[in-house]
Design a binder for these strands. Structure first.
Lengths: 161, 161
DNA sequence: TTCGATCATTGACTTTCTCAACGGTATGGG
DNA sequence: CCCATACCGTTGAGAAAGTCAATGATCGAA
């Protein structure tokens, strides 16, 4: 009940602070590239803020999510799916390991690769974080109807890979 | 005509390399947050690559675009619209100024603020970059129909601000 | 066995982000 | 007019994120 930000009960079409909408008719606001970057900035910003009490960020959540999926992902697979450099995965897994949320297990089929699995504590952390993120997503998507959200998901899914 | 990457004439539903689609059914692929970040990563990556020959990146393009819009934006306004810290705007304007693409003009109404305008050369650079970016966007959106692109633009516009 | 490729890891480096401070300037109240 | 306060651009420092090359261990195939 605290969130004071945005969505004032009044001011129907007051987008953000004044001065911004002046450029909405411009060329940038038509470029999907730019809009995507803008949306992502707002989204991950809000998400990280909401996630802070849990001691992780969205980056780490994404790794934790894969670890908790039961799909036994290797670090390389994670990097590919998350579009992150292998070295970044190392750091992220390290930090989650420090939190006791995940564990590295050497793949018996290929001892070079390590499979990341969530611990008990990791599963609990994941569930909490998941709910927080669903709230955050809901807040970020504010004005969109359920139908529109589904549409957006579908469209993004097509271009994200 | 060199770009060998992606969009093979065949392979209708071959998303990226193999191993990735294994996680598509997972929980992350349902989160708009994640999809947005993924899409943005791909998009800006491709765009920066295409833009490299012109000596700028998407960050600088966005500033140049506003400067070339004729809307006489101040740096503060740019920062707000682009969701960038004022100090970053300074650096971006500096680099564009070094390229001779933009100029700082002190606002006569408020001598604290500086209005950024594109030079002749800046306008030419902007036009070239604009075309490159439209191509890049087209490539990134590959599989989307014109109708879907319009939808996506509309949806993103709603959540980007 | 040996050679080339792959995986995780490390390290160095660049870019981007975030924040605090400072000088110059505007604005409003006494 | 003078003053306090707030704002703009700028600088600087430090954290976070992204990029790239190299290495040891392991795999797969010749």
């Amino acid at each position: 009940m605290s969130t004071s930000t945005r969505r004032g009960a009044s001011a129907p079409d007051a987008l953000e602070d004044q001065g911004t909408e002046r450029f909405l008719a411009g060329e940038l606001a038509q470029q999907i590239q730019f809009l995507t970057a803008r949306a992502r900035g707002r989204g991950s910003g809000h998400a990280n803020h909401m996630l802070a009490p849990l001691g992780i960020k969205v980056r780490q959540y994404s790794v934790l999510s894969l670890a908790a999926s039961g799909l036994k992902p290797s670090q390389r697979e994670m990097g590919e799916f998350l579009a992150l450099d292998p070295s970044q995965i190392v750091a992220l897994v390290d930090s989650l390991e420090d939190l006791g949320a995940v564990q590295r297990e050497t793949d018996p089929r290929d001892r070079r690769s390590k499979i990341i699995v969530a611990t008990e504590a990791g599963m609990e952390l994941f569930e909490k974080a998941r709910e927080v993120l669903l709230e955050s997503e809901d807040a970020t998507l504010g004005t969109l109807s359920a139908r529109e959200r589904k549409q957006l998901r579908g469209l993004l899914l097509k271009i994200a890979f």
